[in-house]
Write a protein that binds this DNA or RNA. Structure first.
Lengths: 226, 226
DNA sequence: AAGAGTATCGTACGATGTACTGAACCGCTA
DNA sequence: TAGCGGTTCAGTACATCGTACGATACTCTT
């Protein structure tokens, strides 16, 4: 208490690799992946850019890390449960996660070094399919099919200029009018008679395709229930 | 001939919006989308960065433009043909195009202003489905399903660290050995018994899912052939 | 009290997109 | 033939990005 009080009660160890990744994920959610820069991240954490490099090697590691965080949010399917229920739940959980974090879809293309949560997720899904009686090659087919559909749906959802129920009309209606001349008649038809109808939500299309796929897959199990 | 000769026989009009976009597409194919910068593009065209801005407003317009170029490469499906053949052909054409230009998949997420070729493509596809007898809502379902699958498959293909037949083994075999401890048993199983088998090509998985989807869709046509 | 190790930061460099400004060139009319 | 206005290109400069390098501050052990 003699001289000056320490200029600020500087909390040491306020940073950690986990906190950096969590903040990065939050920042990407709030402001978009483009706004996630080392500088903005540091500022949001109340520190300086170069401090982050004590916990991560470079920005790519941050991107890998937050993609893995997204996967860690998804409940693992269980080989013990009914495979169809498990796959249905998993598909919806993944779609929800990719909707919460739309930037993750775009990141998947460039990230080729999956994290632990990602690997666990893949392994649990493969295990559930194998336990359901799918052969090894059929499991590969089913997994490629399911994930393609889920990722692709999320990709399209992320690309939509509108979001959620009834919001399509406000945005696309003026655009559609420009097309009413007749250059794109089928798009106009779909828009007017389907998309612009009250209560429409692109997300509702998800279940149709998912059930169609699961129906088709259930016919590919050799043993027992066909 | 009095003073100095003109420094170089400068060919005017060597640039154009089309040439800029074509060169941008070539550059993205060769060096990746990250290497497509205004400066590198200008250099590859033998000009200076700022000259490009006479033909395009900004880089985003270039990105929109090359995405539309990719679509313009895809033959349009015809409402006159058999819908299933047409959809099959279109799916393969899109996959091939997205494989030729892997960066396009990642761009789809961020580009929300489709070009003319893109719109034509969508309209022709919708028209083919309608002509096949699908109702308006069912056409929307089918289109969302098909495109989700195609985009998602292309996304996964783009994310693979290997490419083409038999190349998976060389790259993944050493990785798999690290996993042989038993943490990810089902991934190892799939890898050893399927992916690492000679002749394996992830692209071959495409037809399984596509046919499953087309089978399912054919059951959704109200009239005539079910 | 001194030193060792851990954690944080200041400065600086090269690359990027692009705004601003001027120069070069073309086809034209007078 | 002279000049002019629109078209096309380029030079310079600035803000922002990731991050290399080295210095600094804090904590704990001895």
């Amino acid at each position: 208490m003699s001289s000056t009080t320490p200029p600020a009660p500087r909390k040491r160890l306020s940073l950690s690799r986990e906190k950096v990744l969590e903040c990065a994920l939050d920042l990407a959610d709030e402001s978009g992946i483009a706004a996630l820069t080392i500088r903005s991240l540091a500022q949001s954490m109340g520190t300086k850019p170069m401090s982050l490099y004590y916990y991560v090697a470079n920005k790519d590691e941050i991107l890998d890390g937050i993609v893995d965080l997204v996967f860690s949010d998804i409940e693992l399917p269980s080989p013990a449960g009914d495979w169809r229920d498990e796959m249905h739940r998993r598909a919806h959980a993944m779609r929800a996660a990719l909707k919460r974090h739309p930037w993750a879809v775009g990141l998947l293309e460039s990230r080729t070094s999956p994290g632990a949560a990602t690997l666990r997720h893949h392994d649990a899904t493969l295990g559930t399919l194998r336990a359901a009686g799918f052969s090894v090659p059929m499991t590969a087919h089913a997994y490629a099919l399911l994930d393609s559909y889920i990722y692709g749906f999320a990709l399209q959802e992320a690309a939509l200029p509108f979001e959620g129920r009834d919001t399509a009309a406000e945005i696309t209606a003026p655009i559609m009018e420009r097309f009413s001349g007749g250059e794109y008649p089928y798009m106009v038809e779909i828009a007017v008679e389907h998309v612009l109808k009250p209560g429409y939500d692109f997300g509702d299309e998800f279940d149709f395709g998912l059930n169609l796929i699961l129906d088709g897959l259930s016919r590919s199990i050799p043993r027992s229930n066909a």
